[in-house]
């Protein structure tokens, strides 16, 4: 089962690499996205010298890491899923010897691998232009990687939920944007969560999104003490399981509808 999932992941990976130019363009794009934020913050630091308790080097590193992590968190295959629902290809995918969720998780592995390579390339390119800080320690770095891996079930479940909306609506384009907007606002993609008002910080403590971007980067920067991390890991696991169950329930409910209508 795992073997076939990896195989599907590899197919997805190869699909991306049919046009090698894709890789360079994706990377270039990420850099274009980050430039404006860095310049704006540099202008602010020139006037105030401090924002939210982070130094300018930390802030620049924060945004470069955001740009590197963003593809990992936001990219996914829910567009393909909605497409397969719409044009009836789903009936073939449901007959696969592996389950529908496993099939798409395989795709997600390929997507994840490609996003990671783009993220790494973006990070290296940005390190040439700006001064990037190295991780606080080896332990912090390993925990940084671990928390990112823990976010995979969460992002995957969200993808499946949005993809399942394809059963009810003609296009999930709007839902896609909504998913991206919610993640962007609550995960700290816009700015470090500490810069937001208090009520927002409290709210984001309960939601799973903060742990996708803000927490790993702060671990990388050494801003979070190691004994807090245990709670974060437990919270992530609970959210991962909850969202996965939700996605599964929603899908199982929706798929009945499609069998009745005959595809």
């Amino acid at each position: 089962m795992l073997k076939s999932m990896l195989k599907i992941g590899k197919m997805r990976w190869q699909e991306y690499n049919i046009y090698p130019s894709n890789f360079y363009l994706f990377t270039l794009n990420r850099i274009v996205e980050v430039v404006v934020y860095i310049f704006v913050w540099q202008a602010i630091y020139n006037q105030t010298g401090n924002a939210g308790g982070l130094s300018i080097e930390q802030m620049v590193t924060y945004y470069i890491l955001v740009t590197a992590l963003r593809p990992i968190i936001l990219w996914g295959c829910n567009e393909e899923m909605a497409h397969s629902i719409r044009n009836g290809q789903i009936h073939k995918e449901l007959l696969n010897p592996i389950s529908y969720f496993q099939y798409y998780f395989g795709m997600e592995i390929g997507e994840f691998a490609f996003a990671t390579v783009v993220g790494l390339a973006t990070f290296v390119c940005c390190a040439i232009f700006w001064k990037v800080m190295i991780p606080a320690s080896i332990v912090h770095f390993l925990l940084f990687i671990f928390i990112i891996l823990l976010s995979v079930p969460i992002t995957f479940s969200l993808q499946m939920i949005v993809g399942t909306v394809g059963f009810y609506s003609n296009s999930i384009w709007g839902m896609q944007i909504l998913r991206k907007a919610i993640i962007s606002i609550f995960s700290g993609i816009i700015a470090p969560i500490t810069l937001f008002p208090q009520w927002f910080q409290t709210l984001s403590n309960f939601l799973p999104f903060k742990e996708l971007i803000y927490t790993p980067i702060n671990i990388y920067l050494g801003q979070i003490s190691l004994n807090e991390i245990g709670i974060i890991i437990i919270k992530q696991m609970i959210w991962g399981i909850l969202l996965y169950m939700l996605a599964k329930l929603f899908f199982n409910h929706a798929v009945k509808k499609v069998t009745i209508n005959g595809g």
Partner: peptide
């Protein structure tokens, strides 16, 4: 749905501008 979510997306930019002016 598209229209509403597009506006939500614009909000991201506006939130960033707002956060800037919390600091300067």
């Amino acid at each position: 749905v598209g229209m509403v979510s597009q506006i939500a997306f614009q909000l991201i930019e506006l939130i960033f501008i707002w956060i800037i002016f919390q600091n300067t």
